[in-house]
Amino acid sequence: MNKPRRSARPLPDIAGALLADAFRKQGFSSSELVVRWSAIVGDDVAAHAEPLKIQWQKVPDGQPSQPGTLVLRVDGPAAIEIQHMSHVILERVNRYFGFAAIGKIAIRQAPLRRVPPRPDRRLDPHAVQSIAETLPGETDPALKDALARLGAAIKRK
């Protein structure tokens, strides 16, 4: 008996479903606020603060829902600056949502969970050219190019 074959699902679909539950537990209806944080609030704020969660107040049935509290993780030295900019952050976040979803901001001082920037892997073409000129002329051109790029990469470090 042949079993029906299941086609492989793309990784982003699987990861998206798994991450959606984690974001929902932190009060985010979607991952958009976290993923687009820098575009929403600007690079000046995103360099020192990141969203942790949104706390929503429980309201009795029939009552209008209350705006939530956006909890931000902020670098210690930047906490006062972010506190003074809280009205600007509120405006930018609510403009992104399209309505007054967030009513206030709470700040938690802690180091940010930053992904270290990837080092620049581009080589200086002038360095590659100057190293290539020092190699013997009768060398295979592909080998000469590879050795020149290797030499430039070593010199860069």
Rank of each mutant, 00 (worst) to 15 (best):
76 G>K: 10
15 A>P: 02
11 L>D: 05
82 I>T: 01
94 N>K: 02
120 D>P: 00
87 H>P: 01
71 V>I: 12
150 L>N: 02
153 A>S: 14
29 S>E: 11
5 R>L: 14
135 L>A: 05
15 A>H: 07
14 I>T: 14
142 A>T: 11
131 I>R: 07
78 A>I: 02
52 L>V: 10
58 K>M: 06
122 R>T: 07
13 D>K: 12
136 P>L: 05
112 L>G: 03
143 L>Y: 06
38 S>H: 08
95 R>W: 07
33 L>T: 01
50 E>N: 06
120 D>Y: 00
101 A>R: 04
19 L>T: 07
4 P>D: 06
16 G>S: 08
83 Q>T: 10
149 R>N: 01
135 L>C: 08
135 L>E: 04
81 E>F: 04
56 W>P: 05
143 L>H: 12
29 S>I: 06
109 Q>R: 15
40 I>Y: 07
86 S>H: 11
91 E>S: 08
146 A>L: 08
79 A>M: 02
1 M>Q: 12
6 R>W: 12
72 L>T: 02
141 P>S: 10
32 E>I: 07
7 S>W: 09
74 V>W: 00
111 P>G: 09
96 Y>E: 04
79 A>Y: 01
156 R>D: 08
110 A>N: 09
58 K>R: 13
61 D>Q: 15
131 I>L: 15
115 V>F: 04
20 A>R: 07
58 K>V: 11
62 G>P: 03
129 Q>C: 13
91 E>F: 04
103 G>Q: 03
15 A>K: 10
155 K>A: 10
47 A>S: 11
3 K>Y: 08
100 A>M: 07
38 S>P: 02
9 R>S: 09
54 I>T: 04
9 R>N: 11
4 P>Q: 14
79 A>C: 04
60 P>L: 07
31 S>E: 12
20 A>Q: 13
153 A>C: 03
132 A>E: 08
132 A>V: 03
107 I>H: 06
41 V>R: 00
95 R>F: 06
144 K>R: 15
122 R>Y: 01
145 D>E: 15
151 G>I: 01
40 I>L: 06
140 D>P: 02
96 Y>H: 02
58 K>C: 04
